[in-house]
Structures are given as structure tokens and as C-alpha cells.
């Protein structure tokens, strides 16, 4: 049983070893698919119609839903951030669901050239990078909208003695944010990996239910929660 992140290739650049891991390759694949999809939609919608039909209808519905989501969570700041958070949401959602799709195989012990992808979000490096974006956005937009002095003064609220606790609290946010996503997706990956090692009569039908809960329910819920918490952190730092 092998839940570890496989290394696709080790590059040697000027004496430095650079490891290209499975998570990196899989997230490039996901990003590539999203870019191709975006270019396809763009070429289809060169001259948008007044009354939407076909693919324009679907895309407008999607964009509208995501815009409403960020506006209702972030209030008056929502509109500005909605394109970023919509992209983040779609990326995390696809990463969480990628375990259901085939991708290149990097496991040397597995005989076939293709294998089910290991979700990139089951790698703490990926989720921590996403959480760090949120952390720097929180601090950056906080300083931008409040000014440095107000931002520093807010750190000493409600009393000066609590400043270290406030700082620890700020630093703990990206940790809990990243490990929430990582833990849930990794848990699903481990359970599914262990389940597929059972003898074959157990593998008829039941995995559908398990995938439904661990991949689809947990995947959708965790991407929703990650984006919603990130929105809440940023918009509350700006007020």
C-alpha cells in the first residue's frame, strides 16, 4: 500500500536537485485542462448574443453563481475578488475530484502507463501554498485598506498584553486552512487505497458509495469551505 507522493523526475540545475513530483505534474494537467477549456469558451463566445444560447447559457449561469457567492460572503468587496476566488474554487474542486480520473502513472511498482491520479490537494505543499496566498492577501489588503498604523494597532486589540496571541492566531490561520483541505482529501485517498486492496467480491458496487462520500461530497464541501474561509479572512481584515 502506497500513499506517498511519487517523484516524476529529478532535475539537476547547477548542482541543485529539483524534484518534479506527481502533485506538480497533476496540477499542471488540471491547470492545462482549465486553460484549454477557457480558451475554447472564449473562441465560442467571440461575439456574445443578447439572448444567451448553448454554451454561453451554461457559462453565464456558472459565472453568475460564483459572483453571487463571493458577493454574499464578502459584502461590498465581493465583486472585486470574484474572478480570483471563482478561479481558485474551480481549481481546488477539480483537484479534489481528480482522483476519479486517469492520469500518467508515476508508481514504479504499477504495471500500466496510466493510473488514477493522486489529487494534488492530498499534498501539503500544494494546500499550504494556496493557504499562503490567502495569508498574504489578508495582510496585504488589510494594510492597503486600513493603513499600516491602523493595521498594527488592530494587532494590539483588545489590550496590548494580547498582542502575541493575536500574532499566533494570524499565523495559525494558514496552517489550519491548509491542513483542513489536506487532511480531508488525504483521508479519502488513504481509505480508498486501503479498500482497493480487499479481495474482489468486496469491490463490486460498494466503491461507488465510498467515492460518492470521500471524493464527491468531501471534495465539493472542502473546496467550498476553503474558498469561503479565505473570503471571510480577507474581507474581515479589510473592515
Amino acid at each position: 500500500m502506497d500513499f506517498s507522493i511519487h517523484v516524476a523526475k529529478v532535475l539537476q540545475i547547477g548542482g541543485l536537485e529539483i524534484w518534479i513530483t506527481e502533485s506538480m505534474v497533476n496540477s499542471w494537467i488540471i491547470a492545462g485542462i482549465l486553460i484549454l477549456l477557457a480558451l475554447f469558451v472564449r473562441s465560442k463566445m467571440r461575439d456574445p448574443e443578447k439572448v444567451p444560447t448553448g454554451i454561453q447559457n451554461v457559462v453565464e449561469l456558472l459565472v453568475d453563481t460564483l459572483d453571487n457567492f463571493s458577493e454574499s460572503t464578502m459584502g461590498k468587496h465581493g465583486r472585486k475578488f470574484s474572478s480570483f476566488y471563482a478561479g481558485l474554487f474551480i481549481y481546488i474542486l477539480l483537484s479534489n475530484l481528480s482522483g476519479l480520473f486517469l492520469g500518467p502513472n508515476w508508481n514504479p511498482e504499477f504495471p500500466l502507463p496510466v493510473n488514477f491520479m493522486r489529487p494534488p490537494t492530498a499534498d501539503v505543499a500544494v494546500t499550504f501554498a494556496l493557504a499562503l496566498i490567502t495569508f498574504f492577501m489578508t495582510q496585504g489588503f488589510g494594510i492597503k485598506s486600513k493603513g499600516v498604523f491602523k493595521w498594527m494597532k488592530d494587532m494590539t486589540e483588545p489590550m496590548v498584553l494580547l498582542t502575541p496571541l493575536n500574532i499566533i492566531g494570524e499565523l495559525a490561520n494558514p496552517v489550519s486552512l491548509s491542513f483542513r483541505l489536506f487532511g480531508n482529501i488525504l483521508g479519502g485517498t488513504i481509505i480508498m487505497g486501503l479498500y482497493y486492496n480487499l479481495p474482489w467480491p468486496a469491490l463490486v458496487g460498494i466503491p461507488v458509495v465510498l467515492h460518492g462520500y470521500f471524493d464527491i461530497f468531501a471534495g465539493v464541501l472542502q473546496s467550498f469551505i476553503f474558498v469561503m474561509l479565505s473570503m471571510t479572512f480577507v474581507s474581515s481584515a479589510m473592515d
Binding site: A172, S176, F179, R180, G183, F224, I225, M228, L229
Partner: peptide, 15 residues
Amino acid sequence: LLGQAVAQTTGIYAL
């Protein structure tokens, strides 16, 4: 969901 996600934090630390 927002509150439940925050309540999960200590459990995540344990994990």
C-alpha cells in the same frame, strides 16, 4: 458550514 469548519481546527491539529 463556516462555523463547523472553524470548529474542526483543533481536530486538524491532532491529525
